[in-house]
Amino acid sequence: MAITLEGDVPTDSVASPPSSLDVAGDRTFRGMTYMFSWMTIFLVLYILYEIAGKAAPAVKEYGVGFITGTTWDANRGEFGVFPEIWGTLYSAILALMIGGFFGVSIAIFLTQDFLSPKLELVFKNIVELLAAIPSVVYGLWGIYVVIPAIRPTANWIHEHLGWIPFFETSLSGPGMLPAAMVLSIMVLPTISAVSRDAISSVPHKLKEAAFGLGATRWEAIVGVIIPTSATGIFGALVLGFGRALGETMALAMLVGNSNQVSLSLFSPANTLAALLANNFPEAGKQEEGVLMYAALILMAITLLVNLLGTAIMNRASRRLSGVAR
């Protein structure tokens, strides 16, 4: 089209239609952006393919027994990841309970005009900084600060309440509780940021209506704001859970890397990610394939949880867009 126009334009004019070079450049550039977009999709598929492909021989060889097996012995070629799956889920659930409580409380505290906007911003930045600290630094801090700090209390609880399964062992060093505590600090920023967004997107008039009916601040929060943003808060928890499942370094350093299934908060345990981090660098050919299988299981679990979280968040924003405005 540009070429047919050319005849009508006076040659001394400042304005000119795009030259054929411009048009070609435009097409190329657009094509490139399109290509890179597609490459994102291919990248995800390639990651799935690569991990699944490398795991395939081990999947064939060990089958379902790998998931239910409880021993890990590279010398005898016996592999099972049930304790790791248990440890992954258990640590993530504990971290979610602690981190969820703190995260949602903070989200409420920082959105409901308890503080002046300036102070709110200060706390918001502090919580965001928690997310900026690298996980390996949290691991180091956990080893030299958290474990010594909680050990006396933990052992006192074990001595006096040892009959409760949660406290049936003593804390001798690394263990489930310090790992879960540090993990909860790491998921807290995610949970608080996402649920803060959910809570602050509740329309003001709903809250004002509650106040108009004579509700106290907390009656409005519990009766109106939390129910309205419940889907979003739930989505925040699921996303935090997904983050906790995949977190590696803090757990590899704090959980104790012991292949056992225990309810006790003080006993060492292991997680899938920590197993990969600790065994992969020194793995032989056979163990490597088996670790790929473990990676595949971890990927399946986290993908499932993240898909669920994304779906919930989408639903939350759809529902709220119905309420708002």
């Binding site: 995800v44 996303l239 997904g242 995949g246 590696t248 971890l298 993240n306 994304t310």
Partner: peptide, 21 residues
């Protein structure tokens, strides 16, 4: 959707992938 999936992708699995690939 893929980008959001990658945001939640465990970092250790990125390592596993780069090792394999």
């Amino acid at each position: 959707f893929c980008a959001k999936l990658l945001t939640g992708f465990p970092s250790i699995l990125a390592g596993v992938f780069a090792y394999a690939a």
